[in-house]
Design a binder for these strands. Structure first.
Length: 552
RNA sequence: GCUCCCGUAGUUAAAUGGAUAUAACAGCCCCCUCCUAAGGGGCAGUUAUGGGUUCGAUUCCCGUCGGGAGUACCA
């Protein structure tokens, strides 16, 4: 039910629209209409206007009473009606899903580099993108998850040279091996120019399709993906495409030709550029003076490929805020090329990740591996379970869910634009506004439901009109709008905030009231409320890449 | 220099232009003979700064200060 629309309809004044109705402040009923802005037009004081509106409201099934408070008109709903309606429809997404059926969203996220460690710098893109992927799917979109691999460039020639020189071919290659080979190559090639030259020639071999070189390059790629996929599996992250830089190698020329044909390019200092002075941006580099393609060229080709193959309605790039200029340039060039779909592209940016106040640096060893973070978090969860609930069955399974949840919430709990300084104290905090708190509340609900004999078939809405229960019902009624808003703003943290508020309201209810009592009617109603909270917590957490165990 | 982003309790964060700015963590104090205390309650403590727009500004606009990022052949 859209209460704003209903209330504005009851007032029935051309000046008052549904958007004017807002959620009332604490202790002022359910909805409120500030009447200040009508004062000029109606030439009356706001309180008088509020009183006038109040007097017009006919008897109805929705609004219990309308009270004037200063310049506000406050509405209290008929709680029983509100409870009945909310409990019937709080999790009904059919309308939304129908409206979104047939829409496609491409989400470029995680986008790791081959042969580089998977560290906490990749956490944000992976978590935000993975969450958005689930949110859009939940709302009925077709989502295409794209891991735009960093799998091309001269560094692979260097790595290949290093591997041929020092690599132990008898052992199974690991990501760690590749990292140390690369570091060693960088160090030794500073002293030995011949080595640097070998790196270049090895890369040429890959480019030209030399069978041996390509085979080793594929080994690097497969090895990286194999290790990284273990982390993705733990996090429940999925991709529909791993087409990365290498994939677009042969797809850039048509774009370059078109840019030239349309007169958008010029040659400057030997490089091919698109001037963007008119838009307050530095030029977009298309080709280096030696003829090689660049980042932007590849991304133009990738965008075209996605438009052609997925026919997206939206195309999201979940990439750090540092690359803001690159994406503004990219979108502008596409627009200048006349691509209608350019305005459907969004850079979903997020803040810098640092570690103990210092920027992350693979070269300086100032990194934290994501798998280590997850392992530490799961380990801490295991200790807490051992301490608090040693008889729990499937301790490892629960520890895994709680540990992973804590890490995901660290990434998804606050607005993505905020910079984050990674520290273990924060990630490993399991109290207060955290995933374990939400999981705990969910487990508490499930435990109560089990004690009460399961989920009731029917219940009496009038038994949930006390303040604590009603506050929970109001939270439940906001679930659908919350998920929609998170999708519209590309902001999973909106769901995280919401779940915290929901859990807090339920925990207050739980402390103030006994659910399972002698009173059958009351018990059924409270169990129904508990079940609803439990379901929303579970569904909501899933959207945040977190599983909620039934016991913990 | 120019462009973009961010400044809210000690700390980390909330708040479609609305009422007394809301939580969590840390601190102090309470609550398990009672459905999971990973919980609940209480105390204390905040909008960088100067203007402007508005009935009303944490929110919008301009300036200042502070922090971060980017700024031609890396991605």
């Amino acid at each position: 039910m859209d209460y704003r629309k209903i209330i504005s309809g009851l007032i029935n004044d051309p000046l008052v629209t549904a958007d004017d109705i807002q959620i009332a402040a604490e202790g002022h009923g359910d909805y409120a209409l500030p009447c200040f802005k009508y004062a000029r037009e109606l030439r009356k004081a706001p309180p008088a206007i509020a009183a006038e509106f109040a007097s017009r409201i006919p008897d109805n099934d929705i609004v219990e009473r309308a009270e004037v408070a200063g310049g506000y008109l406050n509405f209290s709903l008929k709680r029983e009606t509100m409870v009945r309606e909310t409990m019937r429809e709080y999790s009904d997404f059919d309308g939304l899903r129908k409206a979104n059926a047939g829409k496609t969203v491409c989400i470029d996220y995680s986008s790791i580099n081959i042969a580089k460690p998977f560290h906490i710098g990749h956490l944000m893109s992976t978590a935000i993108g993975g969450s958005l992927y689930r949110i859009y799917k939940y709302l009925g979109w077709k989502a295409v998850g794209i891991n735009h691999l960093g799998d091309w460039g001269t560094q692979f020639g260097k790595l290949l040279a290093a591997y041929n020189e020092w690599g132990d071919k008898t052992k199974k290659l690991t990501l760690g091996d590749m990292l140390s080979l690369y570091v060693r190559f960088t160090e030794e090639s500073e002293k030995d120019p011949a080595l640097a030259e070998r790196g270049r020639t090895e890369f040429l071999k890959i480019e030209r399709g030399d069978a041996e070189a390509v085979k080793t390059y594929e080994l690097f790629k497969a090895t990286t993906l194999e290790e990284v996929n273990k982390v993705y599996d733990r996090l429940g992250i999925k991709f529909d495409s791993y087409n990365g830089e290498a994939f677009y190698n042969d797809k850039m020329q048509p774009i370059i030709d078109e840019l030239k044909a349309k007169g958008l390019t010029e040659v400057s200092d030997g490089a091919l550029i698109v001037r963007l002075d008119d838009y307050g941006m530095p030029p977009c580099l298309i080709e280096r003076s030696d003829g090689a393609s660049l980042y932007a060229t590849r991304d133009l080709a990738a965008a075209q490929y996605r438009a052609d193959n997925y026919k997206f309605d939206k195309c999201l790039y979940v990439v750090a805020t540092q690359q803001n200029l690159h994406f503004r340039q990219l979108f502008k060039v596409l627009e200048l090329m006349g691509r209608e779909w350019a305005k459907a592209m969004v850079h979903v940016q997020f803040g810098m990740v640092s570690y103990e106040g210092q920027p992350l640096s693979t070269r300086h060893g100032h990194v934290v591996f994501l798998s280590d973070v997850i392992e530490n978090s799961v380990e801490k969860a295991r200790r807490i379970i051992q301490d608090k609930n040693p008889d729990l069955s499937d301790k490892d399974g629960v520890a895994e869910k709680v540990g992973v949840g804590a890490v995901m919430f660290f990434a998804l709990g606050t607005q993505r634009i905020k910079d984050v300084d990674f520290n273990y104290d924060k990630v490993l905090s399991f109290e207060g506004e955290t995933a374990p708190y939400l999981q705990y509340t969910h487990a508490r609900c499930e435990s109560v439901i089990a004690k009460g004999g399961g989920r009731p078939e029917t219940f009496e809405p009038s038994a949930l009109t006390d303040d604590e229960a009603y506050a929970v019902v109001k939270m439940l009624s906001a679930f659908r709008d919350t998920v929609s808003e998170a999708a519209e703003k590309y902001e999973p943290s909106i769901i995280a905030r919401y779940l915290i508020d929901l859990a807090q309201s339920y925990n207050r209810f739980y402390i103030a009231n006994r659910v399972v009592t002698e009173d059958k009617t009351l018990t059924a109603a409270r169990l129904a409320l508990t079940a609803a909270v439990s379901d929303v917590l579970k569904e909501g957490l899933k959207l945040l890449l977190t599983d909620a165990p039934d016991r913990m």
